[in-house]
Simulated assay, not measured.
Amino acid sequence: MVQIPTTPAPPTPPAPRPVPTSADVARLAGVSRATVSYVLNNTSAVRISEPTRQRVHDAARELGYVPHAAARSLRAGHSRMVLMPAPAVAAGPLYSQFVHDLQQALSQIGYTVVQYGASGMHGQEAVRSWAELRPVAVLVPGNGISAEGVAVLKRSGAKAVVVLAAEHVPGAHTLILDHADVGRLAARHLHERGRRRIGVVVPVERGMDMFSGPRLAGVREELAGTGAEVVALPMAHTEESAAELAARWPELGLDAVFGYNDEYALPLARALQDRGVDIPGDVAVVGADDLLIARLARPRLTSVAIRLPAGPALADLVDRAVHRPGTEAEHPGAIQVALVVRESS
């Protein structure tokens, strides 16, 4: 009789570890479940000693426990999610720092900020995709929402909608940021310095026209009727594109350029210098955003500074709107722009 060898049974995988609960944290820390909830949800209405807070945090870390966002939302009657739709174009250092400061300020008062990318969606389609996540507040970074969109979000449970836009959006807390003002300020400065043939860099990258268009329009509006000439200068954010534009400078005959922002102005300024153009003697250069690189450049770059709201102030606005949803939307006012004059102009 031939014996057929048998294949040994595979080892039984270990049973998955149970998900730790707040009751487990309470037992390990020697406190009540209510105390765990107060500590981990940063509840300020209840006074809890620092040693007790530390025991709860230590127990939560040891067990690997994190609060359940959905359960917390059910108890509170609303989520703690603040949704920030990602901008359609790559965010620069100024906006990235603004988002970082705002996220930090909101997290300190118990909110979770989620950046949401809805690639290819626009208008009401994008708004509906935001509403599906049931955020308690939405912060829209550009002119990407209408009064109808605000109504959709509020019907889905959003208590606050904050918008950065060129004009007030009914129903929203609107921070007015008119990019035409940036162009007007740069143009006024260059004209006052005696410049009469002014180029304006227009980024060719997709989606940038929502910012560059108003800035170019602002330059043209400011210089209308002055006799000054405005020339649009398409340019990509590359050394090669800046060099190609600088090579055309003799035929363009421009004596000034508003570089859209610092990140476009500086490559063009360097390309002009490489071709022997004196800045500001031959060509005055102005950027925007007032980034660190503007101060490090030689000559230092004149720039239009955009004073975005501080993270804690905007976080406080969101929190007040969440807790008083029936009140009329506040109008925090216009975001200020200011010219910082340096050697380049």
Rank of each mutant, 00 (worst) to 15 (best):
P267K: 03
A172Y: 04
E229M: 10
H173S: 15
P67A: 06
P16N: 09
S212H: 07
D101P: 08
S303N: 06
E50P: 06
P85W: 07
A310W: 03
L40H: 04
G123T: 09
A232D: 15
S156L: 03
D278N: 10
L308V: 12
A90W: 03
K159D: 10
V219K: 01
H179F: 13
P234L: 07
L153Y: 01
T35V: 15
G218L: 09
A288M: 06
A294S: 15
V277I: 15
T35S: 11
D290M: 04
R248C: 04
A172Q: 04
L245I: 05
G92V: 05
V89A: 08
R47W: 07
V231K: 10
I335G: 02
V340N: 05
A71F: 09
A321E: 02
A126S: 13
I293D: 05
T226D: 09
V89S: 05
T174A: 10
G157K: 06
V136P: 00
H189C: 04
V152S: 00
M208Y: 09
G218F: 02
L133M: 12
T174R: 02
A334D: 11
R47K: 15
H189E: 06
G225R: 12
G144W: 00
E263L: 13
H331Y: 10
P20S: 07
P135F: 07
A131F: 02
E330A: 15
V201Y: 00
G333C: 11
R206M: 10
V304L: 08
A86I: 06
V204Y: 02
T52G: 13
R55W: 08
R248G: 03
G311C: 11
G253L: 08
V286I: 15
V337S: 02
A26I: 11
R188K: 14
F98W: 13
Y111P: 06
H173E: 14
P170V: 12
L63P: 04
V231L: 13
Y111N: 03
G259Q: 01
G92W: 03
R55Y: 04
T7S: 12
G149V: 05
L308K: 04
V182M: 09
P18Y: 03
A131Y: 01
A313I: 08
G281V: 08
P51S: 14
N42C: 04
V337H: 02
G199C: 07
M210A: 15
A166R: 13
P5C: 12
G157C: 11
E132Q: 15
V36D: 00
Y65A: 04
P93K: 09
E229F: 03
L139A: 08
P214M: 09
R270L: 12
I4Q: 14
V113A: 15
V82R: 00
R33P: 02
L185W: 00
V31I: 14
E343I: 05
R270G: 10
Y264C: 06
L339Y: 08
V66F: 14
Q273S: 14
G110M: 06
I48C: 10
G227M: 12
A228Q: 02
P299V: 03
T327N: 11
R134S: 12
E125H: 09
R196K: 14
